[in-house]
C-alpha cells in the first residue's frame, strides 16, 4: 500500500505537471476578463478547501480534532440551552422581596420559616407565608399533591417556583424540613428523572 508521504509526493508532482502545462497567466488568454479573476480565484479557493484531496487527504490528527471540535461545540451548545432552561437562583426571603418586579419570571428557590397561623387551605390551593428576619413573603401553592407530613407551622420550608407580578410567590414544589431532615414532595417536581 502506498504510504501517506508517497501519496502526497505524487499529488505534488501531478500539480507541478499541471501548472507546467497550464501556466497561471494562460487563463486570461482563454477569454476571461480581468474583473472576473477574483471569481475564479474564489472558486479555486473553495475548491481547494473542499477538494476531495483536502478533506480526505487531511492529516488524520487534524480530522480527528475537527470531529472532536464539532462534537464538543454541539454538546456545549446543548448544555447552554439546558442551563438557560433550568437554572434556578437560590434566594433568601429578604433578597427576593428586595428584588421586587425584577424577580418576576425567574426560577427561584427560596427557604424560610413558616409563619405561625399563616397556613390556609382553600381546596387545591395552600397559602402560607415564609419569613427569615424581616418582612414575610406570601406563598401560594397550587397542586394536587398533598404537602409532606413535616409541613407544619414553625417548620422550615424550601419552595421552588417564581414570583408573580402581584408580588406573591407561586410555588411549584414545596419541601419541608424539620429536625434537620428533609422530606420532599417529588410528585410535582419537573425532575421526572430517568432520561439519560
Amino acid at each position: 500500500m502506498e504510504g501517506q508521504e508517497e501519496k502526497r509526493k505524487n499529488w505534488k508532482r501531478n500539480r507541478q505537471d499541471f501548472f507546467a502545462k497550464n501556466p497561471p497567466d494562460s487563463r486570461t488568454e482563454r477569454g476571461l476578463a480581468k474583473s472576473e479573476l477574483p471569481v475564479v480565484w474564489f472558486y479555486a479557493f473553495l475548491k481547494g478547501i473542499f477538494s476531495f484531496e483536502r478533506v480526505f487527504g487531511m492529516n488524520t490528527k487534524w480530522k480527528m480534532a475537527a470531529g472532536a471540535t464539532v462534537i464538543v461545540a454541539v454538546l456545549g451548545w446543548l448544555a447552554f440551552n439546558g442551563f438557560q432552561e433550568s437554572n434556578t437562583y437560590y434566594k433568601t426571603v429578604d433578597e427576593l422581596l428586595a428584588m421586587k418586579q425584577s424577580a418576576v419570571g425567574m426560577r427561584v428557590r427560596v427557604a424560610g420559616d413558616l409563619v405561625n397561623g399563616s397556613i390556609e387551605r382553600r381546596g387545591d390551593t395552600v397559602l402560607f407565608r415564609l419569613v427569615e428576619k424581616g418582612p414575610s413573603l406570601p406563598v401560594r401553592y397550587v397542586g394536587k399533591a398533598i404537602l409532606p407530613d413535616s409541613f407544619k407551622e414553625g417548620a422550615q420550608a424550601i419552595c421552588d417556583g417564581e414570583m408573580t407580578p402581584q408580588g406573591d410567590f407561586l410555588a411549584r414544589r414545596v419541601q419541608a424540613k424539620c429536625a434537620s431532615k428533609y422530606e420532599a414532595d417529588y410528585s410535582t417536581a419537573d425532575s421526572k428523572g430517568g432520561k439519560p
Binding site: L75, A79, E85, T88, Y90, P196
Partner: peptide, 17 residues
C-alpha cells in the same frame, strides 16, 4: 449567588452523548 441547574441541563447533553 448560588445558581443551580436542573435535569434539563443534564438530559439535553446526555441524549446525544
Amino acid at each position: 449567588e448560588q445558581i443551580s441547574v436542573g435535569p434539563p441541563f443534564f438530559n439535553r447533553v446526555h441524549i446525544p452523548i
